[in-house]
């Protein structure tokens, strides 16, 4: 810890002032407003604000659509996270071998990190397009079934899950690779001398040693699936068919800017905030504990 400070009294305030101002004006104040307005309801053209107490919240929790969207989002986020992490860890282990062309391979695998959710959405929508999609065709040849995600909600859900997980592979691989490289060579070498197979040393040594990274990525992936996949859904499925891909952020957007139900949208905002607080609490709790292994 650094105990050596400069003595200036005003300068530090000036240094933090811009950040603090931005935070108060553009983050804290709007959130406070969201919280306050979650107790009101108003007309589409911004008229007639009426205080309704907890009604917006009660409506949400008694709405099968909201509860379904909540469950769907949790499932979506869990699938994106676990599929994404499993594949990424596998890739990171492959890339961590001493092989020729490693740098090239790494780049060829991590590039989707540069990609937006919107682009991920259109790319996978094309691959699964009911009429001209490559995957649709391959599935048809292999199984004789013509898959159509415009009608099949489960399939649409699978597609946005794949697209979202795929998009985040690059990010995950980068972090896993660096975690694997940080494992001291001596530990692995001594395990090998003790006669441990590479599987054994992977599960007994590498995995425990990268737990902190794993938890970090776990939280990051959940947050990603919750908050950064809106574009994907909006361009690929618009929440459909029916409501089968309507995740929480999409529902929030629709209620706020399509149906102009600001009260409900604000209540949904507040609930989303509760999720983030939950995730962040877990992040602290578990990454602190995780550090003991690493």
């Amino acid at each position: 810890m650094n105990e050596s400070y400069f003595k200036e009294k005003i300068l530090p305030y000036l240094l933090v002032l811009p950040s603090v101002l931005v935070i108060i004006i553009f983050l804290v104040y709007p959130f406070y407003e969201a919280f306050k307005l979650s107790f009101f309801q108003g007309g589409a053209w911004g008229t007639n604000q009426i205080f309704v107490g907890l009604e917006n919240y009660i409506n949400l929790f008694s709405s099968p659509k909201y509860l379904a969207s909540l469950g769907r989002t949790l499932l979506f986020a869990s699938l994106v996270t676990f599929i994404g992490l499993a594949i990424s860890l596998g890739l990171a282990v492959l890339l961590n071998q001493k092989i020729k062309g490693r740098l090239f391979y790494r780049t060829a695998i991590i590039w989707p990190y540069a990609l937006s959710a919107v682009i991920a959405g259109v790319l996978w929508a094309l691959l699964f397009d009911p009429s001209i999609g490559l995957i649709t065709y391959v599935v048809k040849v292999l199984t004789g079934i013509r898959i159509n995600w415009r009608t099949n909600g489960n399939l649409a859900f699978v597609i946005i899950t794949i697209a979202a997980a795929w998009r985040n592979i690059g990010y995950n691989v980068i972090f896993f690779m660096s975690a694997l490289q940080n494992i001291p060579k001596q530990v692995l070498e001594s395990a090998e001398i003790d006669g441990a197979s590479s599987f054994q040393s992977f599960f007994r040594i590498s995995i425990p040693l990268i737990t902190p990274t794993m938890f970090f990525l776990l939280i990051m992936n959940y947050l990603y699936a919750f908050f950064r996949t809106f574009g994907l859904v909006d361009v690929a499925t618009q929440g459909g068919p029916g409501t089968s891909t309507e995740i929480l952020t999409y529902k929030l957007y629709k209620d706020a800017f399509v149906f102009f139900d600001a009260g409900s949208a604000n209540a949904q905002s507040v609930l989303l905030f509760a999720f983030i607080v939950g995730f962040t609490y877990l992040q602290f709790k578990y990454t602190q504990r995780g550090v003991f292994y690493g």
């Binding site: 200036e8 935070i23 983050l27 407003e33 929480l248 600001a262």
Partner: peptide, 28 residues
């Protein structure tokens, strides 16, 4: 590098940005 009153408040405020992504305050 400085020791000043309110340092931890400021630090906590910065941390808030992590907790408040766009959808959490979109309408206001």
């Amino acid at each position: 590098f400085f020791d000043f009153r309110g340092k931890y408040v400021a630090f906590a405020a910065v941390f808030l940005t992590q907790l408040l992504p766009v959808p959490v305050k979109i309408v206001p």
